[in-house]
Nucleic acid binder design. Sequence first.
DNA 1: GCAAAAGTGTTCAATGTACACCCATGC
DNA 2: GCATGGGTGTACATTGAACACTTTTGC
Lengths: 231, 231
Amino acid sequence: MSTNRTFTETKTHEVTVDVVILTIIKNKLKVLLLKRTNEPFRGRWSIPGGFIRLSENLDDAALRVLKEKTNVQNIYLEQLYTFGDPLRYPNTRVITCAYYALIRAEDIDVKITDESGASQIEWHSVEKLPPLAFDHKEIIEYSLKRTRERLELCPIAFQLLPKKFTLTELQKSYELILKKELDKRNFRKKMLASNILIELNEFSKAGSKRPAALYSFDSITLDSKRGHFFS
Amino acid sequence: MSTNRTFTETKTHEVTVDVVILTIIKNKLKVLLLKRTNEPFRGRWSIPGGFIRLSENLDDAALRVLKEKTNVQNIYLEQLYTFGDPLRYPNTRVITCAYYALIRAEDIDVKITDESGASQIEWHSVEKLPPLAFDHKEIIEYSLKRTRERLELCPIAFQLLPKKFTLTELQKSYELILKKELDKRNFRKKMLASNILIELNEFSKAGSKRPAALYSFDSITLDSKRGHFFS
DNA sequence: GCAAAAGTGTTCAATGTACACCCATGC
DNA sequence: GCATGGGTGTACATTGAACACTTTTGC
């Protein structure tokens, strides 16, 4: 915390937003990382971020960063925490307001191919993160903790799933986030009792086994419970 | 949120910390407010705050503000939320990282009398706030919401009480924060079952009625449960 | 002796947890 | 016909909620 680095007290702080973008791909919880093309930490992976424009509020800045990287809008985005250790950024004082977002893999239009011809952008499993720039490991871990806490209270996992999903897929996403196995019967009972699922009369043909009933979230009920769920 | 004010994009942001300081005085939940002596909002009440020094992390900045105003250290202090609407501060872009603190009235050494000869500092009941500067009303209300959420999970109310307290006093502090009445028997049962209270063999002589048993919090048990309570 | 706050248990409802077998389909 | 994941119900434990009377003291 305390440091013997000399600061130029005439200079003011810089303020960024950084966004932890989470999704589920192939039954793994993934986070979107960029390979840095500039110093500091050139060549290291980092979560997407950017400076806050003077005329822009914090949520809008986070949404802008999200849209720039994934072209996704209208998703679950929440302010996470503000990180401001004087040493978190080399040579400069940069305070960052961190956000986290849950997006559906099917909605993603990530420019995985190089856009600038230089930077790389990739999904990484949260279980095995590469070395990260700045304090981004801490930020990602905090976002996972928060996601877990939220999920215990409200079904935010629907933000990670395709619009139509099976109960097993929903359960798997819970298990991925909570890092523990859940009982199938209890899980289904609870989900169906909550009245936030709509049973479609469609069946998944994926896999070569018994077709599974497809569900979607009841956005009307979700919205009406939003005050309750998200308080 | 969006605005037609013109911003000078060359200027960078200013960053402050603001601290909502809560305590209980005479069975009321109170917040510490300062009367502003400078523009903007000269003469209005505001929560204490200040610029973050370049060499100081956010928690330390909040602690410094707290100590400057109340001379209290070693208390419950938690980052609340970062407010950054471009219009929250007139003419300048100021982003503030808000904290909230719970302190015991008995520990307070507030310089209620003028220090600079000009500014006033006073406790105000959260139920009837005066007109406030900036978005400080919103910040205070958010801190109350957060305090309520925390209290449902862990007994942070002990931060507001004297070191020795009666169960009725503890219950009253819960009721003040949660804004609802609690059942006396259920409350006592739950508190005693949690094993975080130490029954002192002392009795309150306050009031002219039957003496009430005094308790204190078991700091060892609290600390060992801290990971559980505060996660 | 009476006013005023302290203190004390039981019942019921709801919620969470543990647990094992049959079903529908593709191959 | 068999392998695979889909689908279902019951019993028990834990937790929270409702509720009324006796006790101790100061005056």
